[in-house]
Design a protein around this nucleic acid. Sequence first.
DNA 1: AGTAGCACCTGATTGC
DNA 2: TGCAATCAGGTGCTAC
Length: 313
Amino acid sequence: MPELPEVETVRSGLASLVVGSTVTGVQVFRPSCVRLQQGGEGEFAMRLHGMVLDAVVRRGKFLWIPLAEAEDAGSAHTPAMALSAHLGMSGQFRVFEGDPPEPHSHCRARLHLESPDGPRTVDFLDQRTFGYLVAERMQPTPDGLPGGHGSALPAVPHTVAHIARDALDPAADDGHIVSRIRRGSRGIKQVLLDQTVVSGVGNIYADEALWAARIHPQRPAEAVSTPQARALLAAVRTVMTRALAQGGTSFDALYVNINGESGYFSRELAAYGRAGQPCERCGGLIVREHIGGRSTHWCPRCQRRYGPQASRN
DNA sequence: AGTAGCACCTGATTGC
DNA sequence: TGCAATCAGGTGCTAC
């Protein structure tokens, strides 16, 4: 599943292939992929047509492409609009140079571009259709700092305004994240998955970070100490940084891929998908349980529910 | 306000 | 063999 490292791989691949291109045509094969667009696919196509793709930016799992008017392209003028994209569970972008092939059966939308190097085609594929595209207005960031990775613009699209900065964002406020992590009665894993607390963490890296920090996924957030919350945030960063380093090597630039389930990093997972196997730290058996509808993996021996001193799991 | 639960969706896998 | 139930899960909405 695409989490921050996978989405960043997509972002950098897309950026290298489409920035500076002009939209010359828009095809929507499945209208639900633009379900967030006010006015539907007609409005979507109209807002994109003739615009220049100025950058590819990411915050957490959210991607967007600031759209410049042709006469403003490359200038310091701040784009008012962006093409936003979320990959959901199974979204992919593929870029073709020259004549594109027939659209894949999972292709939900296709953008035709004109670049200085000739025509380009961008396909948005999404088997499970949880992903979406939307052409929408940008708004300033409250702190005046860059909205995400890939652009210095202090702006984010409307659908991203409520999403917290991600764990790898240089502008992330650790003190604020730690205090929000420790708030409330929810299980700590639920809090990690809450994109308004810290963004970019999905089901796989949540389990990995909790394992690394030795915290039970169901420990109430308010029972997590400040040092533990700091360690957990550090673990989130470590696991996503390592995954990103691997993801970066497993993709071909022309086949802009996401491949959460079979990337090289899957071999390094310590908890996720390892139910019944020994914990590599203590030898206890990793367990799997459905928590809040999500499969959750942990070591009951070294991840204690109520803290290091508790005798009960 | 904070939290829980469900809808959304399709293809692969499992069970009978 | 064939069909139906189950599973995967990120986000956003609704209900409590």
